[in-house]
């Protein structure tokens, strides 16, 4: 279970916040819960040896703020946009997944959750819309993680 984001960019912290909440709800013997704030090529090492991965990130598409997206990346690439790198800086989550797939280093099951953010400027704290979505997202993600780990 991996949360991706930047704690200092408002809604970009959503993935980190979700995994903090899910950590309390899952069996630590069976589920590694990781807050990943570095660059995304490191994901290949983070999920090394994992049977399945659930990854949560904030995204920005045309959906309304707080919308929860779920994509199964096990078989096919994440659609880009909105999942590709948000800038040309190195590698985004979608690129890391495709790099892993090309190298045979993608876990068998990869589920990616995205929550639609509205504020990505510098600062701490989720927007109201994303904050309101945290409860449902935490329930959904923890349910899926627990059923995978059962």
């Amino acid at each position: 279970m991996i949360g991706v984001g930047n704690a200092l960019r408002h809604d970009d912290a959503a993935g980190l916040e979700v995994v903090r909440r899910v950590r309390e709800l899952v069996d630590p013997e069976r589920v590694a819960v990781i807050e990943h704030v570095g660059e995304q090529s490191a994901l290949l090492d983070i999920w090394e040896g994992a049977a399945a991965v659930v990854l949560v990130d904030a995204i920005r598409s045309d959906a309304s703020a707080g919308t929860i997206h779920r994509v199964d990346a096990s078989e096919r690439p994440l659609p880009a946009p909105p999942w590709g790198s948000s800038s040309t800086h190195a590698i985004g989550v979608a690129e890391a997944i495709e790099l892993a797939r090309a190298l045979g280093r993608l876990p068998a099951q990869v589920i990616v959750y995205g929550v639609e953010g509205v504020r990505f400027d510098a600062g701490i704290g989720l927007s109201k819309e994303v904050g309101d979505a945290m409860g449902v997202l935490t329930d959904t993600v923890s349910h899926e993680v627990r059923s995978m780990a059962a």
């Binding site: 590698i91 690129e95 495709e98 790099l99 090309a102 190298l103 045979g104």
Partner: peptide, 12 residues
């Protein structure tokens, strides 16, 4: 790099 990795995984 992703396209290159499909053919030249060892380099990546």
């Amino acid at each position: 790099a992703v396209e290159m990795a499909r053919d030249h995984g060892e380099i990546v």
